[in-house]
Write a protein that binds this DNA or RNA. Structure first.
Lengths: 118, 118
DNA sequence: ACGCTATATCGTATAATTGCGATGTGACAA
DNA sequence: TTGTCACATCGCAATTATACGATATAGCGT
């Protein structure tokens, strides 16, 4: 499973994996919670969401596999925190991405969609 | 469809939408192609992939709706290019994201997963 | 040993994504 | 008008993601 239609470099693949992990609203929020609180047990994270414990555990696994968080067993619980190396790597990759355009800040007005006609 | 389990701010939601769009390998590659060539008609993009025209057109739509590219009708074709404002906005958001950690560059060694035991 | 707490994982239902071919539309040339 | 090219969109199949409850495991206190 997970057939590759397209081939990316390992770094690109990893970056895409991170972006995909963060593209989910639940996981995006978990990252923020974790960043605010520095460190959290699974149960605490569960309590910040309306989701079942098993579901949150799944999301944590995705974030772990993407290298965005790390979990360490602390007695009977698992203690999660943001993986600073992973996040730093992500930020660097994004900043260096598409260097041929978009390197000066610009004010930004957002419209939902465009395509001049048709 | 598209039920919201969790509520994010509009900016967070838009960021997540962009990340999700980029999390797909095909779309990730399309962005790179577009950045290299500055400007492309759909047909040219199709030719850089093993996919059907209709499929590529769908992916272009997702990228458009995320605000990452823009398409302009040029005679019988549609001319696509990276949306520099959108990409700039994305970069700024990511750089300012999780300010409490991960702000010094660090060397990085990557392992597929971790979780000390269990 | 027994229960209790915290977690991960499994099985499974449902929803979303991704892919394709077919179809419709607009631009343009003959 | 007729044909063709370049697209977008539709309808549908296959795959993947997301959610849940149930279950298994590990640590810890009694």
């Amino acid at each position: 499973m997970e057939q590759d239609i397209i081939t990316l470099t390992p770094a690109q693949e990893r970056l895409a994996q991170m972006l995909k992990a963060l593209g989910n609203p639940v996981r995006f929020q978990i990252m923020q919670t974790l960043a605010e609180r520095q460190t959290c047990i699974t149960q605490e994270i569960v309590e910040t969401t309306p989701l079942a414990q098993s579901t949150v555990s799944q999301h944590l696994k995705v974030l772990r596999e993407a290298g965005l968080i790390r979990g360490e067993i602390e007695g009977p619980a698992t203690c999660y925190c943001v993986d600073p190396d992973g996040v730093r790597w992500l930020k660097d990759q994004i900043e260096g991405w598409l260097p041929d355009c978009c390197n000066e800040p610009a004010p930004m007005m957002w419209q939902p969609e465009r395509l001049t006609t048709r």
